[in-house]
Every structure is written in structure tokens, then in C-alpha cells.
């Protein structure tokens, strides 16, 4: 039993990513998309928080939203996997439910 969570807000804008990570269960997947991709970057004030709180979940980032924002792939934090929409669909299908943190 697992959940796919999606987050589409920058962690610098509000607490959505923090709240999501605070409720996700071990083994769940969290996909950062739209402005949520800023939460996947390394070397910023939120990186350690995201890495710490996200230690028990699988973190993903939507690649097309990363490139759209001019974020170099090398700036995506280690351990965060980039996926495309087909893989997003596959993740939604293979989990038990999807919870979109709006």
C-alpha cells in the first residue's frame, strides 16, 4: 500500500512541501512538479530540510518542469530521480492512490 504525492509549490513560497513530507508514509513517492521543482534543487536553504524530511520516501522531479525553468540537471539534489510524463503516469498507476498537495 503506497501513495503517490505531488507538490507543485516552491518551498520558499509556502509550507506545502513540508506538510506533504510530514504526512507521507515510509515508502511513498513524492513528485515535485510545476513550481514544486525548486524544492528539488541542491545547495539552497531548503535542501537539507527536504533531504532530511524526505529520507524515508522516494523523491522524484518532473524533468520538463526542471528544464522549463532553466535549472541545470546538475543542480537537482542527489537521490532525486527525474521522470517524464509517461513515467508520472506509470507511478500513478502503480501506487494505490494519488494525493495532490495543492
Amino acid at each position: 500500500m503506497s501513495t503517490l504525492h505531488t507538490v507543485n509549490k516552491s518551498p520558499f513560497q509556502n509550507q506545502t512541501l513540508i506538510s506533504c513530507l510530514g504526512h507521507a508514509k515510509a515508502g511513498d513517492s513524492v513528485l515535485l512538479m510545476e513550481d514544486g521543482v525548486y524544492g528539488a534543487m541542491s545547495g539552497n536553504a531548503m535542501s537539507e530540510v527536504v533531504a532530511g524530511m524526505g529520507a524515508n520516501v522516494k523523491l522524484f522531479v518532473l524533468g520538463s518542469d526542471v528544464t522549463a525553468r532553466g535549472i541545470d540537471a546538475g543542480r537537482v539534489a542527489e537521490g532525486i530521480t527525474s521522470v517524464n510524463y509517461e513515467e508520472f503516469v506509470g507511478m500513478a498507476a502503480s501506487c494505490d492512490r494519488v494525493q495532490n498537495w495543492l
Binding site: 501513495t3 510530514g22 507521507a24 492512490r97 494519488v98 494525493q99 495532490n100
Partner: peptide
């Protein structure tokens, strides 16, 4: 509690967020 809320969320078929 927050952990209790996580349990409630993980026990659903359909989650609609607003």
C-alpha cells in the same frame, strides 16, 4: 495528531484536495 492524520490519508481510495 499529525501521524494520525497521515494514517487517515493512507487509508483512502480517493483523495480530493482543495
Amino acid at each position: 495528531s499529525r501521524a494520525g492524520m497521515a494514517d487517515v490519508m493512507a487509508d483512502q481510495d480517493v483523495v480530493l484536495s482543495f
